[in-house]
Write a protein that binds this DNA or RNA. Structure first.
Lengths: 380, 380
DNA sequence: TCCGCAGATGACAACGCTGTCAAAGGAGGT
DNA sequence: ACCTCCTTTGACAGCGTTGTCATCTGCGGA
């Protein structure tokens, strides 16, 4: 931005007259049209323009028409900054998720954005990268800085005390991972995992691996609970060796798969606890030509149905979750309805082949079809 | 936010007189801290606080420390609405893309968001759904309404005259599809397509299908040009029957693949012109067990490397594109450097198997390795 | 001793909008 | 004729911040 010589000319913003006030502007040259310009053009006061823009009642139809015409002609768009400055709350909602590069979250944000548009709200996205400090920074920037009309976020830290001062004015909804004291939209992790593992049991599997127990996520804890529930119910002893754990945020899926298949008493079925692990595991099984291994993934992913065999998945629909979250947020805007609670979004088990591979004990099994259910609430 | 009793006291601005003003607020109860609160707490004027917040020079170190302490203690976060109202341009950049549910665009936005954060900028996302009117609405909302500091968008309409009034103040960058008069970040569509088709020719293919020529996109036109270039260079006559076209926004990939393979003189190689078509085509070929067909996809997709054979792809890296776009935008903020131009981001051909399947004329071919190249510029 | 100057700080307006209150005009009742 | 009420409209302040200009305090040099 070199110091360009002050060419006045076309830029009517600068008039030489009043030595103070360098920017007393003339009657709109290429400046952005403001409410004042519309008012002048329509021959009314700015307040009347404001009334028209906000669809308030008491405006004479004829006046309204004149104003609308002026708006149209000037291409006037109300300034949201001024609006939110005045009202204390702006025309955007904030979304903080792990990463937009994760298709699950991308789809979730997409659902939110679509619905927000119908409410005339914009969407501010930010990513936490699973970092507590960054989460804090982003949330505060949105809530305090941008004065968003609401926040949907995939929580990282277990508590968010710094949000407290804003909770009274700004609705907050957690997604994907639930937190106490915050309305949370999650899937029935425990029940869905149980469903999958129960299917393995029913098919005669006794050595079922829990693939990738990432300690950082409470969702994974719940899925683990579902896994354990079923084992207990089926009288199968839990074997820690069948659990793979991400340590320091990384896990070599290939060698881990080889370990599980190479155990003295090897795994015959895999429950992949999240989509990333599922992709890694699928890739690994293909690489070592063990597509005969039974597997169910938590979370659908593209191409899960094209592979041979198709990968059976628990369908955790990001659109459904995003929709539930934004609906919840909009409801909270109306009235902060009672105690925060969990909102459970349903899942389904997509049978595609890999989850229907029988286990060694299949012959013995007496078709214990009565799978445990863990329905726990309804959906927004 | 009930009507707190009017404590005037330390807040000298307000005189108790005018009985109107129902919400004269006392010294910060659970109200959001503003610059005034910080000023009062630090015993300085609001201007000094402003100076500290904006890292301006002339502030005594000791004063600065006092102010910083007050900020820290009160948890003060500057109000962006007021800021952008004053400065006329806000702390966010706008991004308008086809859909966030498209992983390509999601990754692109992710790259932008990551870089924006380092500049202290937030990201407002909006989707156009490939609809011109919606594109217009979203762009105007961002530029005029939110007064964003810049816009990155995947253009839909061929012209955007309504942006003109804002171009002087708001930098604009197009991505993925280029537009005249706007700095555009795109990949070398024509060259990359040519690269792929040339590989087919070198492998002895003569019947190369162009799979899914969607007329709506200029990128597809360019890829088509690359395709035609190579055919011409190799002396192969263009056969319109080998081109699949999306009509009315949809194409039945399965039956189309069957048609191409069932021609009297059938296709032996497929160039899938975009990721969606590639996924559809791959699924189709798997379904009819014709994995022996040579194929190269424009645009990588997950699992392209896990399938058998792996799907050879032109790697069109959304992160690279997103990065180039945001860098370009930031550069434009500094100085609107000359004429808008195209910024070409490189691609690579990922050899994974499906693109290396030989054609019928392979034996005859004399290894015409001199593939045409179309290098056309550099990268941001 | 006094002036000038630089560094540090503050008073105040204004950004574009909306909430509050008041005023103007007309209809209807007495 | 007068009063009341309702509808339509406008004047004005103030949201939280920053740019402009003014003020104040020391300090070095004449």
């Amino acid at each position: 931005m070199t110091t360009l010589s002050k060419e006045v000319g076309e830029d009517a913003r600068y008039d030489p007259e009043p030595a103070h006030h360098p920017d007393r502007r003339g009657p709109l040259m290429n400046r952005r049209p403001g409410i004042k310009d519309v008012a002048a053009s329509a021959g009314v006061s700015i307040k009347t323009v404001s009334r028209v823009v906000n669809a308030e009642e008491a405006v004479h139809p004829e006046t309204r028409a004149r104003v609308l015409h002026a708006i149209q002609q000037l291409g006037y768009v109300p300034n949201t900054a001024a609006r939110s400055l005045k009202s204390g709350t702006g025309g955007a909602i904030g979304v903080v998720i792990d990463s937009l590069a994760d298709p699950f979250f991308a789809a979730l944000v997409s659902a939110i954005e679509t619905r927000a548009l119908t409410e005339g709200l914009s969407v501010l996205v930010a990513s936490s990268s699973l970092d507590r400090d960054r989460e804090r920074e982003q949330l505060l920037s949105l809530v305090a800085g941008h004065q968003v009309a609401g926040v949907v976020f995939a929580p990282v830290a277990s508590e968010h005390p710094y949000l407290a001062p804003y909770r009274t004015t700004t609705p907050v909804v957690a997604v994907d991972r639930s937190r106490v004291g915050i309305d949370s939209v999650v899937v029935d992790d425990r029940g869905a995992a149980a469903l999958a593992v129960q299917q393995f049991v029913d098919l005669g599997h006794r050595r079922i691996a829990f693939f990738d127990r990432d300690e950082r996520f409470s969702t994974i804890h719940r899925r683990m609970s579902g896994y354990l529930d079923v084992l207990r119910g089926a009288g199968i002893e839990f074997d820690p060796e069948l659990v793979s754990s991400t340590v320091d945020g990384s896990l070599d899926y290939l060698s881990e798969a080889e370990r599980l298949l190479g155990l003295e008493n090897p795994a015959t079925a895999f429950f992949a606890s999240n989509a990333k692990a599922a992709i890694g595991l699928t890739t690994a099984l293909h690489r070592i030509h063990r597509q005969d291994t039974a597997m169910i993934a938590f979370g659908d992913f593209s191409f899960a149905d094209v592979l041979r065999p198709g990968v059976s998945c628990i369908d955790q629909d990001p659109f459904l979750i995003g929709n539930a979250a934004i609906e919840r947020l909009l409801a909270l805007r109306e009235e902060s309805s009672g105690e925060p609670r969990e909102w459970i979004v349903p899942t389904a088990l997509l049978q595609r082949g890999s989850g229907e591979i029988e286990g060694p004990a299949a012959a013995l099994s007496v078709g214990s079809a009565a799978s445990a259910r863990f329905a726990e609430g309804d959906v927004a």
